[in-house]
Amino acid sequence: MAKKRVVKIVSIILIAFIFVFASANYISYRIVENSKISSVQTQADTKAIQQRLQNLGYYKGNIDGIYGPQTTAAVKKFQADYGLAQTGVVNSTTADYLGVNLGGNSSNDLYLIAKCIYAEARGEPYAGKVAVGAVILNRVKSPDFPNTIYGVVYQPWAFTAVYDGQINLEPNSECYQAAQDALNGWDPTYGCVFYYNPATATSQWIFSRKVVTQIGKHVFAI
């Protein structure tokens, strides 16, 4: 009986150990994965390529920025039709034939704003999403903040989503549309440069800013 108990205890300890070990590894893996800087340019470029291929009738899949087998097949088919080497890879020659500007600045800005909106306000109503995009652009225009979209989004301690790695999640179509509206000049906040959730905000300083409006759970302030 005692022997059995010892074996039992040892097994439990072992299983517990393996469990702790595995989950520790998994957690550290997740932390590393989340905090990785994603290749922004490539995904934005891929989207541009997919969109162009779709317009030309070569690609039927989603415009998701993922360079998967469907995209590769479409690129190969396009290359075949235009007498290019069928590599499935868009080099500068293929990009020229496609009429796609690789690394086009506007697409990258749109993508970054969409990611920031998704990470910060995916549960908010649509106007609240546009408002978050507008705050980013208002900061670019304001003298108190950096002068580029990347500078504003990646400014230290400016957005929690950049901190916890949520900025790297793939945005959905609604966040893209909200980002597009913001870039086209929509601003339901009339120039606000701050927003916070009054229920969860921890910084006392933020409460000293003049509140302009509330959309969904977010309060917008100047």
């Binding site: 108190d144 903040f145 301690w157």
Partner: peptide, 15 residues
């Protein structure tokens, strides 16, 4: 803007 200082600390200087 590259230095790891929060806007709270440098917004006046940035302005």
């Amino acid at each position: 803007s590259y230095l790891p200082i929060s806007m709270n600390g440098i917004s006046e200087t940035t302005k």
